[in-house]
């Protein structure tokens, strides 16, 4: 589904990713772990299409298309979703409007008819239950006045409504207390499916207790240093990131 090859990315002239390779297939759940400044968020932002990143070489292929040639909205229509580390507040834009506009833009792009307003609301209410999101949040402005945990829940709720093929979860666990983490992780687990891939970016092993990955990658110094199964995360927890660099 996603093939990242020898990706080099700079921000303001500073090299962040230095030849990153990553292959992700449908149905797989990957965890990317690594120390601060390793380039984890850069990778997810580049995949989602955020401005301000200079791709100096390499390629990203998504479902046989050149992802880097696509605008952020085209990526969304093709099924790429980023759950933001810091979801932005958008006063005046209603949460449900946003999703309706997003879903219908995607459907229009796929040559499908727009969803009936009633059906859409039914779907939305159902998906809100998945992450135990209070229905009152649906009519509020996007993330405005939400607590940190509510924002993260809202991200997973949006993912549930938009039904992406490739979901990137950028530090979705940060800022969550243990109860909120359990709820969010529960929502994510329910969204696992054979035709959907997920990439979790995280500092901590803790999230992986709740969402079990098929692969764990260690990203440091702009490259994937080591790949393994979930036991790698436990080893990391025990030995720290320096151990990876020494035992490449």
């Amino acid at each position: 589904m996603l093939e990242v090859k020898d990706l080099h990315v700079s921000v303001d002239g500073k090299k962040i990713l230095k030849g990153l390779n990553l292959t992700i297939n449908a149905g797989e759940v990957h965890a990317i772990m690594g120390p601060n400044g390793a380039g984890k968020s850069t990778l997810s932002n580049v995949i989602a299409g955020r401005d301000g990143y200079e791709i100096t070489s390499g390629s990203i292929t998504y479902k046989n298309d050149d992802l880097l040639e696509m605008s952020p909205e085209e990526r969304a229509w093709a099924g790429v979703f980023l759950a933001f580390q810091y979801p932005v507040e958008i006063p005046g834009v209603n949460n449900t409007y946003l999703l309706k506009a997003g879903v219908n833009a995607k459907r229009k792009h796929q040559g499908l008819e727009e969803l009936d307003a009633f059906d859409f609301m039914q779907t939305v209410k159902e998906k809100a239950k998945l992450v135990e999101l209070d229905p009152s949040f649906l009519s509020r402005s996007v993330n405005e006045g939400f607590s940190g945990g509510e924002k993260k829940r809202n991200e997973i709720f949006q993912m549930a409504v938009l039904e992406p093929s490739l979901a990137l979860l950028d530090e979705t666990d940060s800022g969550l207390d243990i109860d909120a983490l359990r709820i969010v992780a529960g929502g994510v687990n329910k969204l696992r499916s054979p035709d959907r891939a997920m990439v979790m970016i995280t500092h901590y092993q803790r999230l992986l207790d709740y969402i079990e990955p098929d692969f764990v990658h260690v990203l440091a110094d702009g490259m994937i240093q080591k790949t393994g199964d979930k036991s790698l995360a436990l080893e990391l927890e025990e030995h720290g990131y320096d151990w990876v660099k020494e035992n490449k």
């Binding site: 980023l82 958008i90 946003l98």
Partner: peptide, 20 residues
């Protein structure tokens, strides 16, 4: 960017934010 990442075109996202 947030709006575009949810599938709203750049033009529509500008309009939406201006209107909001």
């Amino acid at each position: 960017f947030y709006l575009r990442s949810r599938g709203i075109s750049a033009e529509a996202a500008q309009e939406l934010l201006t209107f909001a």
